[in-house]
Design a protein around this nucleic acid. Structure first.
Lengths: 337, 337
DNA sequence: TTGTAAGCGTTATCAG
DNA sequence: CTGATAACGCTTACAA
């Protein structure tokens, strides 16, 4: 069961070597021969055996995308773009969720599954201190990273510090002085984006000599519900903030709901700005700092392919590509009343 | 570069055959031998070569998930669950978007890429008349399908007809008689869910002797923007509907926005019900018919694995598993004013 | 330009 | 229970 290269060779009256060369477009094949082989292969409905090809050549023709989440907007959007790039490059895309964050089930370390299985790895937003990260990087294969920076690796990022600065400055410019920070979680096990955005926030607060009340730092776990509870907590304080910088739009959504629930109006009584430019943000009138999610995925995918193909090789110390962000002012922010 | 089974065999003082058996947990291996082999393999940091294993065994250890979209909520949620099932089964998950719907780039037919490459295929919501669908099914490999029914295939679905009936009946029970239908697009190239939901809608309308004004059938393309424009068109008519059944929550979101834009209040001036129970639905107070997306993914994944492993084989005519839906009444629907 | 043949690293079939 | 050894289907020097 299954036409092999030998069948094609026999039918075309050439050797298997020639078939292999002809079909892969290698040079040094007579044009006539090549056409004949191609025709015969098509007629026989020949499909190459990837396993055999891989075993013989050492190339797997696939890459792995490793992410802590699959269905969250940011991640699924990136996966979609990378898939698109890989499809055009004729590469298979293996999807690997590094559990724990998402599912209840035990986390299966991805490293062993990666060895000998893929030609390259694309890592999306693993926290720098993630135990698997180092293991993956030390595999020493072509690797690209989105949303994080590591030495000797192709990194595609946004400037999270400046994104946060932009958001916070916007709030300050509107006259707010009592500004809350809605982070994902406590400082341990943070994503790169979290610590950077926190830095940006602190910087601007300091620059403007604004006090940072520790009571005004809350955790929304990057979810709508989390953002809502966090905002609840903020508003139930004796001296609530007049503005909030949320590290993600989804948390901001929850916060908006909480604000309304308390009989207040976002952008009027309380200003809120997020990060992402999630598709629902314009819908909800959320002021946010947009990040170019699609470009992040496409760029990282293409760079990874460049490494794998040997064109566009990586320098000694890796490379960091920074993509631009933009403040989108909408209704959720306004001058301090 | 790379420890092979021979290195392990030599180090353990056994044959490669024994190593293979011991490591895979096959019977007929002395317990002591097995342990020794395992220890040696671990010490040597041996990792099996998937390509070699695949070539020799004929099993690829991977499945393909084929979807028309990756980043839309329904799809990414399903992908996430399937990934989880596959990870636990030790299978690789190849992600394949059957372009065209999503990207601008030329659609690459998935069939050749599937042959000899995977042990099973999980198809998510391909329209029944999709040219690739038949080709994929005729590959004759273990296949499972979500959101569609085909002969001789493992199908996991919801009852879209009754989902639509439930939604429409809810509207009728509230006293609405002039009810609009917001579909994805025109009848050609429809997803299974679309035609089924349309049927359910028509059934209830007929049962209640309600006239179906052709002006009240609009297309929202399953997007927020599409839903908004479609609702705009509806409200700009001389005799607008008092209620709308939208085939998806995302379209309903857009519709809600349009309603508000027209100075009307959802659930009060115009009622609207969707399908999905998207995470944002409860947030926006959208009445909807929920579908068990996670279960859809898990069930299909497990069934597919059952087929691949030979347990839980498929009967002659395939099998259809129907998962339950539920009407979630929220603020976007109310009695006819 | 084309053919020959030696791998690639496992698995699986037989013997033993 | 264990060991030889022939596949598995392709790639790739090396020859011709």
């Amino acid at each position: 069961m299954g036409i092999t290269i030998r069948d094609v060779a026999a039918a075309a009256g050439v050797s298997t070597a020639t078939v292999s060369r002809a079909l892969r477009g290698l040079p040094n094949v007579d044009q006539v021969t090549r056409e004949r082989v191609k025709d015969v292969a098509a007629a026989l409905d020949y499909v190459i055996s990837p396993s055999a090809s891989r075993l013989a050549s050492g190339r797997t023709g696939s890459i792995a995308v490793i992410t802590p989440y699959i269905s969250r907007w940011f991640f699924s959007e990136i996966i979609a773009r990378v898939e698109s790039v890989m499809q055009q490059s004729g590469m298979d895309l293996l999807l690997m969720n590094v559990g724990d964050y998402q599912n209840g089930h035990a986390r299966i370390p991805p490293t062993p599954r990666l060895r000998r299985r893929v030609d390259g790895i694309l890592i999306v937003s693993l926290p720098p201190q993630d135990p698997d990260l180092e293991a993956i990087l030390s595999l020493g294969m072509p690797t690209a990273m989105i949303g994080g920076i590591a030495p000797n690796v192709e990194c595609v990022v946004i400037d999270d510090v400046s994104a946060a600065k932009r958001a916070t400055e916007h709030l300050v410019a509107l006259g707010h002085t009592r500004i809350a920070l809605m982070a994902g979680g406590p400082a341990t096990a943070r994503f790169t984006a979290e610590s950077q955005r926190e830095r940006g926030f602190h910087l601007v607060m300091k620059q403007n000599s604004l006090v940072e009340d520790p009571m005004l730092e809350v955790f929304g776990h990057f979810t709508i519900e989390g953002g809502e509870s966090a905002m609840d907590a903020l508003l139930n304080q004796p001296n609530p903030p007049t503005a909030v910088f949320a590290m993600s739009d989804e948390m901001a959504f929850g916060a908006i709901r909480s604000i309304r629930k308390h009989g207040l109006e976002p952008g009027c009584d309380v200003s809120i700005v997020g990060v992402d430019n999630h598709p629902m943000s314009s819908y909800l009138g959320l002021t946010t700092v947009s990040q170019p999610v699609s470009e992040l995925g496409v760029t990282a995918g293409e760079r990874l392919m460049g490494q794998i193909l040997g064109i566009d090789p990586l320098g000694e110390n890796g490379r960091v590509t920074e993509l631009p962000t933009e403040l989108m002012v909408r209704e959720s922010t306004g001058t301090k009343s």
